[in-house]
Design a protein around this nucleic acid. Structure first.
Lengths: 225, 225
DNA sequence: TTTAGAATGATAGTAATACTATCTCATAGA
DNA sequence: TCTATGAGATAGTATTACTATCATTCTAAA
């Protein structure tokens, strides 16, 4: 049986739903490839249109601007990650084991998921590491936030915070620790590869060490004192 | 006696040293104001020139592009922070007290320093919070890094890592913990004000709570086990 | 079978951005 | 007095970030 995974996206993210048409799916697929290749700053709708074989105007029918595309694909990623997280921790009783699974899912390389043909999760993971925070580091975060554009990120954070509280109901900073885990899973990876002296993993560039660091950090903090 | 503070900057950051001329100092002062006001994306040399009362071409004599300006002011900030850190922990013997001072300096509001007339440290601090990571989150990090553009950040990280090791010489991740403290001091502040549900401080918006969170995180981790 | 409407393609145009080039002028130091 | 340096003024280009319009194709309902 063939299972197809669909992540339900906030309709305010787009002008026309890219999941509903061939062109729309191409826009997502090629956006991921182009942002991965050139970085978000050099990513333009002109280049994207040429890449796909359509016109700039065609892209603008789906997305207001390139920043919305970035929010779209990051939101998709957080939604997908939460699905994987719930799926993978489904029958785990021990919250500490769950939390370790969370850290591992966040901090290690993603394998392309066949259930989503038009999205390459591996490239997407790399984009989240290098460009993810640009989705919200803008002057218009608050307005974007009012439109619920960051809901998938916040939901994921809430899920992780709940697991933290399961481990220790008295821990005082579950949400901040959750957002710290998420951000550091990506930043330590970025630093390790690009600014290695900001980490202790520069020599080996081994993502399992990021996992170890995060586990040490998290479990030291939430251990009952 | 009047003391003037000068931070020595990497010469590769600029085409002409902005500290050496009146126009140069104006470029720095007004860049900080404009980036603070409009955000880095909407900051252009045209607007900057109009603000100062000079021409675009005049700005280009000092900086290759606006991204270099961002790296310049962030580098300046890290240099200044390290000076403050060393100054403020100068005669503290206990490394744990030192580390608390570090966290406080990183995570609390900056008061404008009279020793640097042309730089408003308070605005600069806000810029670091919202735009700081854009300095290195680019496709050309590695080349920029080879030119040592991020040295002040890395030096600061090394200083903090050393204090961590003073607290516990056996702690395995001093550099990663140091970069985590630096990044989270800023991200938790940003989240608290803009995406409050990612933190536990959304209600009060009290920076002292960020300090408490970071202290708890750090001292749990490095405590000898 | 016709037909409306939705999606796409093709083309054009504009304002702003991110630069580069050149020429002049003031002035400060040798 | 000469000369280098900093700065002002002006012009110009390629690219970016859009908006508008009109023609075409394809499909799903009447």
């Amino acid at each position: 049986m063939e299972v197809q995974l669909q992540i339900k996206m906030n309709e305010k993210l787009f002008l026309r739903d890219p999941e509903q048409t061939e062109l729309g799916k191409k826009i997502i697929r090629h956006s991921i490839q182009l942002i991965y290749k050139n970085g978000f700053e050099l990513f333009t709708f002109k280049k994207l249109a040429e890449d796909i074989g359509t016109t700039e105007a065609g892209i603008y029918r789906y997305f207001e601007n390139k920043h919305r595309v970035l929010i779209y694909i990051t939101a998709w990623y957080w939604g997908w990650l939460q699905y994987r997280l719930v799926f993978n921790t489904n029958n785990i009783k021990d919250p500490a084991v769950k939390l370790k699974k969370v850290i591992q899912l966040l901090a290690t390389t993603v394998v392309d998921d066949d259930k989503t043909i038009h999205i390459n999760e591996d490239l997407l993971h790399q984009i989240i590491i290098a460009e993810g925070s640009k989705a919200y580091l803008t002057k218009h975060v608050s307005e974007d936030n009012k439109e619920q554009l960051f809901k998938p990120y916040k939901d994921l954070c809430a899920v992780i915070a709940d697991i933290i509280l399961e481990c220790n109901p008295k821990y005082k900073y579950p949400r901040s620790l959750a957002s710290t885990i998420i951000e550091m899973a990506h930043f330590q990876n970025f630093f390790m590869h690009n600014l290695p002296s900001l980490t202790d993993f520069g020599k080996t560039k081994d993502e399992m060490k990021v996992v170890s660091f995060l586990e040490d950090l998290v479990f030291s903090s939430i251990r009952k004192k």
